[in-house]
C-alpha cells in the first residue's frame, strides 16, 4: 500500500484534525482485531518490533491514538537477501463513541501484541431487568 493511501485510512478513522508523526517518516497502520465482551471492547493490535518503552496509547477528545516506533532491524553494513520487514512507525487512530468509560482504559503489551481494553459505561452494559 502506498504511503498516501495509508494516510487516507488514518484520516478515515477520525473526523478530527490531528498531529501525525513527521511527514517523511514511514508509517504502517497496524492490523487490529476488535472484539466485544460483556464488560468491555478489546482492541488487539499486531505491532512486532516495537519495544514497550516506545509504544504509546493516548486518549484525546474522543479518539484513541496508538503509536509505536521500530528501531532499525539490521546493522548498517548488512547485505539484505530478503527484505520484507518495514522499518516504519506504527500509527492508528480509533474513534471512541459514547458509552465507553474514557477514564477506565487498560493496555498491555506482550510478544509484539498490544491489547487495549475499553470498558463500557454502565448504560451500555447488558443487565437483567427484574420482573415484578
Amino acid at each position: 500500500m502506498t504511503k498516501n493511501t495509508e494516510v487516507a485510512v488514518m484520516q478515515q478513522n477520525t473526523g478530527l484534525p490531528m498531529t501525525r508523526p513527521e511527514a517523511q517518516e514511514n508509517i504502517v497502520v497496524p492490523f487490529v482485531d476488535i472484539c466485544e465482551t460483556p464488560e468491555a471492547f478489546v482492541l488487539i493490535l499486531d505491532m512486532p518490533g516495537v519495544s514497550k518503552e516506545s509504544i504509546s496509547a493516548t486518549m484525546d477528545r474522543g479518539s484513541l491514538i496508538v503509536k509505536g516506533s521500530v528501531k532499525p532491524y539490521h546493522r548498517e553494513n548488512a547485505f539484505l537477501l530478503f527484505n520484507e520487514l518495514r522499518n516504519a512507525s506504527y500509527y492508528r487512530v480509533f474513534n471512541i463513541g459514547e458509552g465507553i468509560d474514557r477514564s477506565n482504559v487498560e493496555a498491555q503489551f506482550e510478544h509484539g501484541v498490544l491489547t487495549v481494553k475499553l470498558f463500557k459505561s454502565d448504560e451500555l452494559k447488558s443487565r437483567e431487568i427484574q420482573i415484578k
Binding site: D46, M47, P48, G49, Y73, H74, R75, N77, A78, F79, L80, L81, F82, N83, E84, L85, H111, G112, V113
Partner: peptide, 16 residues
C-alpha cells in the same frame, strides 16, 4: 528479512 554479514547470516521473522 535475511541479512548477510561478513561472518554470519541473520534471519528476522515478524511473529507477533
Amino acid at each position: 528479512d535475511v541479512a548477510e554479514h561478513e561472518n554470519q547470516y541473520v534471519v528476522k521473522v515478524e511473529l507477533p
